[in-house]
Simulated assay, not measured.
Amino acid sequence: MTDGQERAWSDLAPRYVLEAPRDEAATSVRPGAAVTLREVWGRDAPLIVEIGSGQGHAMIHAATARPETNFLAVEVFTAGLARTMLGAERAGLENLRLVEANAPEVLEHLLPPASIDELWVFFPDPWHKNKHTKRRLLTPEFATIAAQAVRDGGVLRLATDWEQYARQMREVLDAAPEFARSFQGPWAERFEGRVLTAFERKGARAGRAIRDLTYERRDRG
């Protein structure tokens, strides 16, 4: 990391980083490690979680625009989290927290069940080579874990610039009994709350169309 990013970890991590009790791996979350949201944010408020927050552009933009909402950025790359903290400090944000951990384990072990109002997965790694597609995040197993974490009536928002991956996402979530489509036609409208990031610009410059998907968590009853 740069000197500034190192400073972010030493000076800002106590303020922004949510420490996750580890299992065996460095970015794992130990089962039974669920946090109390009121203790983390100091209030009761809707919670929006972004998986793969990168450098934090979407989170910082959203947290600034919606101070009444709690936000959690989930990322495994330290430098990206450091940049997010620097941006959060410049914006004076109090409603944003970060966690360096594997996303499925955050949803399954760290956050209480049915605690997320909106779950965002924007531009996840497409692993576009055939031999690597098994590494993709969006699988039936992930859909089950996400359904556990999202409250009834909560929203799952996704976006990608890889058409084949978008179709896989749609196939997985259409088959998930816990989720229902919140859009008509083949794709959802672009989510207005998603700030234009470097990933989206890169995809557009390469001529790849951006495809959005939106699903609602069905009532558990």
Rank of each mutant, 00 (worst) to 15 (best):
L110V: 03
A180V: 09
Q184M: 07
H128Y: 15
R22G: 03
V195T: 12
D23V: 00
F71D: 04
E163P: 02
V49E: 09
V155I: 15
A88W: 09
I60G: 04
D11P: 00
P177H: 11
H109E: 05
G207L: 05
R151C: 06
L18Y: 04
R136E: 12
S10G: 08
G80N: 05
L72W: 15
G4D: 15
G154S: 05
L110D: 08
G42N: 04
Q168N: 13
P104Q: 14
K202P: 06
F71H: 03
R217D: 07
E163D: 09
L86W: 06
R170V: 10
P124L: 09
V155L: 15
E118Y: 03
K129V: 01
I145R: 06
L138F: 13
V106I: 07
G32S: 07
F183H: 13
R218Y: 08
E108T: 13
T133S: 13
R97N: 11
Q164M: 06
R217V: 04
G80Y: 11
R22K: 12
W127Y: 10
R194K: 09
L37E: 02
L196M: 08
E216C: 15
W162V: 14
Q184I: 04
E100L: 13
G154A: 06
P21H: 00
A147Q: 00
Y16S: 00
D219R: 13
R181W: 10
E75S: 01
L98G: 07
S182K: 06
E19L: 12
G56Y: 10
A149K: 02
L72F: 15
G32C: 02
V121T: 10
M1K: 01
P21W: 00
G42W: 01
I48K: 13
W162R: 03
L12N: 06
S10F: 11
R15P: 05
G87N: 10
E189N: 13
G32Y: 10
E89N: 11
L37Q: 05
Q5H: 04
G52N: 12
G153K: 12
A73S: 14
E118A: 08
I145K: 01
G154H: 04
F122P: 01
F179T: 05
M59E: 14
P21T: 00
R205K: 14
E100I: 12
A13G: 04
A188E: 00
G80I: 07
A13K: 03
